[in-house]
Structures are given as structure tokens and as C-alpha cells.
């Protein structure tokens, strides 16, 4: 994925003539094998009649995509909102974990471990089943966004902390020796540098939140998945719709991960940037 020569290629040396021939033969076999696999899948679609136009024609309609787009928008809104909340909570937890005060530190550590060790679904059920019992009325949007955010905040806190730790000690020492207070040193010198290290993992975290929002159907929030269900009942096309929706999720997450990798590579390739700023 990165441009630097990967170990993948280092494992093998320049092949000799015999090896070259072997590689060519095996490559041919591999292509045939993969083609056969694809053929089996296509055949299965064919004999079960899943290629029938009635399962696919509505994807040619503008309204279908608009409807899915509306759902996607809600999904993205929930993911971004959830990530922002996770970032704020994570920031507080990170600050807490780096405090001298034992009680604050202990509480932060416990909360971080708690949110990291409990599945998102459990938090979702909490907001779905328990929160209404307390009389606190939340919209469907918040019933999915809040648990996803809470579930992510511990991971964000740890990512931020490792970013803070990656900032060379000399930076804060220099700031302190200039007479800055500890708080100012943190906000003016350390954190701005730390945040650059952790942007890739924050984007990766956005992907996790986005994936978690697919459980929105539990709280009947009209996200991409929920709208897909509506399409399915309208057109009686389970397989095609779910496949397309899954591909949409995969594509978005793929692009986000790609972005995260790209940024991480740039950070790695340009160590000079680290001491800058």
C-alpha cells in the first residue's frame, strides 16, 4: 500500500529461468482457479434466477438512489456526529489518564477499559431498552449515535495518549523552560503535534463507528440499512439490495481506510515534520 518497497517483494529474489517458468505456469493455474470460482458464483446466481431484471431494474431509477442516498446521509451524519462525540469524550479520558491525581487517573483508566471491553451492541441495547425506562426521551438518531460514540471513546483516548507520548520530551521541556504553564504547554505545544500523529487512527476509528451505525435498524433509525429494508419490501428483492448496500459500505470504508493509510505513510516518510510545528 505504501510506496516504499514492501517486504512482500523482498521475500523473493530475482527468479532464475526455471523459477520464472514455474511462476508463469502456477499463475496460469491460479487464474483458471479464480475464474472457475467466479463462474460457480455466477452460475449460482443464474440457476436461482437472481439475475432476473425484476431484481435489478429499479437500480436504474433515480428515486432508488435518492432514497438510498438519504439513508446514507443519515448513516454518515450518525458516524461523524458519533466520532466527534467520541473524540471529545476520548480527549477528556486521555487528559484524565495523564493526571497526577490517583482518583481521576484510576477512574479514567476504568472508563477506558470499560468502553473498550464491552461490545457496541450492548451499549445500543442499553439506549434502546433501559434509557426509555428512565423516562429520558431520545430520538432514534441519538439512540444509535450515542452508544456508538461511547463505545469508541476509549479507543480514541488510547490513540490520543499514544500520540501525546510520541511527541519528543524536549518539546514540552523547552516550553516549560520558556515559562509556559503546564496547561499552556499541553495545549499550545504538545497536543497540536500529537494530533497530527493520531489523525490516521482517528480516521480508522471513524470507520469503526460507521460500521457500528449499521445496527441502527434496532432502534429504527432511517439509515442506509433501514432504507435498504424498505426497498426490499417494496420490490421483493432481498439479495440484490443487500449486496448493493454492502458494497456501498465496503467502498466508503475502503476509501476512508485508504485515506488513513496515505496520511500515515506521509507521516512516516517525513520525519522532519515531526520536529516542525
Amino acid at each position: 500500500m505504501s510506496k516504499t518497497p514492501s517486504i512482500r517483494d523482498m521475500l523473493y529474489e530475482e527468479p532464475g529461468p526455471k523459477t520464472k517458468k514455474q511462476i508463469r505456469v502456477i499463475t496460469l493455474f491460479a487464474i483458471l482457479l479464480l475464474a472457475a470460482l467466479l463462474a460457480v458464483v455466477i452460475r449460482q446466481f443464474y440457476i436461482t434466477g437472481q439475475f432476473a431484471p425484476r431484481y435489478w431494474y429499479f437500480f436504474g431509477r433515480w428515486t432508488t438512489w435518492r432514497f438510498l442516498g438519504q439513508g446514507l446521509l443519515v448513516t454518515l451524519e450518525a458516524a461523524v456526529t458519533g466520532s466527534i462525540i467520541a473524540f471529545l469524550l476520548g480527549f477528556v479520558l486521555m487528559r484524565g489518564k495523564l493526571q497526577k491525581n490517583k482518583i481521576i487517573r484510576g477512574a479514567s483508566v476504568c472508563l477506558i477499559e470499560f468502553t473498550r471491553g464491552v461490545p457496541t451492541l450492548l451499549f445500543i441495547y442499553f439506549f434502546f431498552l433501559v434509557v426509555p425506562q428512565t423516562g429520558w426521551k431520545l430520538s432514534a438518531f441519538w439512540k444509535i449515535t450515542l452508544p456508538c460514540a461511547i463505545s469508541a471513546c476509549g479507543v480514541v483516548a488510547e490513540a490520543l495518549r499514544s500520540g501525546v507520548n510520541a511527541v519528543p520530551k524536549g518539546q514540552s521541556e523547552a516550553a516549560l523552560s520558556l515559562g509556559l504553564t503546564k496547561t499552556r504547554t499541553f495545549y499550545k505545544v504538545v497536543f497540536p503535534q500529537a494530533i497530527r500523529f493520531v489523525i490516521p487512527s482517528l480516521i480508522a476509528e471513524l470507520v469503526i463507528v460507521l460500521k457500528d451505525t449499521t445496527f441502527a435498524y434496532i432502534v429504527t433509525c432511517a439509515d442506509l440499512m433501514q432504507n435498504a429494508k424498505v426497498l426490499i419490501s417494496n420490490y421483493d428483492a432481498m439479495l440484490s439490495v443487500y449486496l448493493v448496500v454492502a458494497l456501498i459500505y465496503i467502498l466508503i470504508n475502503y476509501l476512508l481506510n485508504k485515506l488513513s493509510d496515505r496520511l500515515a505513510d506521509r507521516l512516516k516518510q517525513n520525519p522532519a515534520e515531526r520536529s516542525a510545528a
Partner: peptide, 25 residues
């Protein structure tokens, strides 16, 4: 790796449970 790293768990499970039977699986 890209497929299974990026697909949401719920989406994969729904495909397996509800969609695959349409392929006789």
C-alpha cells in the same frame, strides 16, 4: 482482506442469514 475488513458485521450477517438462501445456500 478489503472486503471483510470493511464490511459492517451486521451487513455480513444479514447477507448470510437472509440473502444467501435466495442462492439456495
Amino acid at each position: 482482506v478489503q472486503i471483510f475488513r470493511n464490511i459492517p458485521g451486521a451487513a455480513l450477517l444479514i447477507l448470510l442469514v437472509y440473502a444467501l438462501p435466495y442462492l439456495n445456500i
